[in-house]
Amino acid sequence: MFSDANRRRAVEIVAQYPNPHSAIGPLAHLAQDQDGWLTLEAMEEIAELCETTPADVQGVTSFYSMYKRRPCGKLVVSVCTNVTCLVVGGPEILEHLEHHYATDDDVWVEEVECLAACGLAPSMQVNYEFHESLTPESAEQIVDDYKAGRRTARGVSGGRVA
């Protein structure tokens, strides 16, 4: 369920569009930032707000890789291995983080496509905040900083959460 504040925000978002159906994606981001993943209850509420069915919301959101269908912890760590990162150590960073956080429920490590941060490759995002010019060690340090609260993380969908 959306909190009162988020429910108000959701209604505002829907009202921006000539057709409420357009708001499915933005509301899914909002719900995910709130709950940490896209829950079935959230999809039902989004369906009601967007004047459609929960099945439609599920069908649409499952197309997009940013929506998580199961809890993903507090930190989504997205490591790029596309062609520029590939030749300067991206895959090694992915492997290191996957291994290091394999049993850590707070950290979800995923391989992603080009993040448009190739100028300072290799690159990753932590809850959609960019980190560039990485080594396996510096990448681990950054994730640990977020874990320890030395860096402030966005929501798991990249929104600013209060």
């Binding site: 569009y17 159906h21 357009s22 994606g25 933005p26 981001h29 649409v60 997009y64 890789s65």
Partner: peptide, 28 residues
């Protein structure tokens, strides 16, 4: 009025007609 709409991780939504589908709340 200007509305900012966030995508959600799908390169194909850069193709203009897929982008429009996505903006309408559909699969891109």
């Amino acid at each position: 009025e200007i509305v900012v709409h966030r995508g959600a991780g799908a390169y194909i939504c850069g193709e203009e007609s897929a982008l429009i589908e996505s903006l309408e709340g559909k699969r891109g």
